[in-house]
């Protein structure tokens, strides 16, 4: 179990050795900050408008995370494979699943750090509104984003394990994320049928926008994200296994 921690720590530290992490942080904070500023200005101009965090969250999920997650996870295993260090890890006394979970956790830590910095927005907003903001809503918003990121990182690590090339992993992950975003769109064609339910259920964002974002925390959404994560990590494990047997 300790190995997971060592690998996660190394993964997290090495993210900050590449410019990608800083570019992502810069773009994220610039975009969110700019929109947050607009939100507040809007509220100042139109007194009836109550500023909230939900726009900021929506923007964070799409498009920011849809690009940030693949950019962070792309190198996780693909790079190890390319530089030959995967051979080192797979011949050290580290179990395959320890490696996978360590990698995933390292990526997740990066986003937890990012989210921690964004906590400044609700705190600022709280000082601006007389009665303060609803922190329950903020909590559920953050919880949802963390669960969503966990599932997205799972996809990213799995896809990274399939490739030797980071760029291939980047675009494949982006593609799969977008697929799981728009998968609920055709549901309207099959309205009322089981197909529609299944398609809607599969969508990564359906479990966020109408629930966590509006302050509703439901067990089924939590289970969805957790099982999504577990499944992708399992697939990454199988992919590593297949790599050995090839």
């Amino acid at each position: 179990m300790k190995n997971i921690w060592y690998i996660a720590k190394k993964e997290y530290a090495s993210l900050f050795n590449s410019p990608v992490a800083y570019v992502i942080l810069l773009v994220t904070f610039l975009t969110l900050g700019f929109f947050f500023w607009i939100e507040i200005n809007y509220a100042v101009q139109y007194q009836q408008y109550v500023p909230s965090m939900s726009n900021t969250f929506s923007l964070l999920v799409f498009p920011l995370l849809f690009f940030a997650v693949p950019a962070i996870t792309m190198r996780s295993i693909a790079d190890e494979n390319k530089s030959g260090t995967l051979e080192l890890l797979l011949t050290s006394p580290v179990r395959d699943w320890e490696l996978i979970i360590g990698k995933w956790l390292g990526c997740l830590f990066f986003f937890l750090f990012t989210l921690m910095v964004t906590l400044i927005y609700p705190l600022v907003l709280n000082t601006m509104i007389d009665k303060g903001i609803d922190f329950g809503l903020v909590f559920s918003g953050y919880l949802g984003v963390i669960l969503l990121i966990s599932a997205m990182c799972g996809i990213g690590v799995f896809i990274s394990s399939l490739f030797n090339n980071q760029i291939a992993a980047l675009f494949a992950t982006l593609g799969v994320l977008i697929l799981f975003w728009i998968i609920s769109a055709p549901a309207q064609l099959f309205q009322g049928s089981v197909t529609a339910d299944v398609l809607t259920y599969l969508s990564l964002t359906e479990h966020y926008y109408d629930t966590f974002l509006t302050g509703i925390i439901q067990l089924k959404d939590i289970i969805y994200y957790l099982s999504f994560t577990a499944l992708t990590l399992l697939m990454a494990n199988i992919s590593i296994d297949i790599r050995r047997w090839r």
């Binding site: 190394k10 090495s14 530089s83 030959g84 006394p93």
Partner: peptide, 21 residues
């Protein structure tokens, strides 16, 4: 192919491996 992480220092790299071991 010597399996090294180019973005780590020699010491950190060996510490990482020592921890895994």
């Amino acid at each position: 192919t010597v399996p090294l992480y180019n973005d780590m220092t020699v010491f950190d790299y060996l510490m990482f491996m020592a921890n895994l071991r």
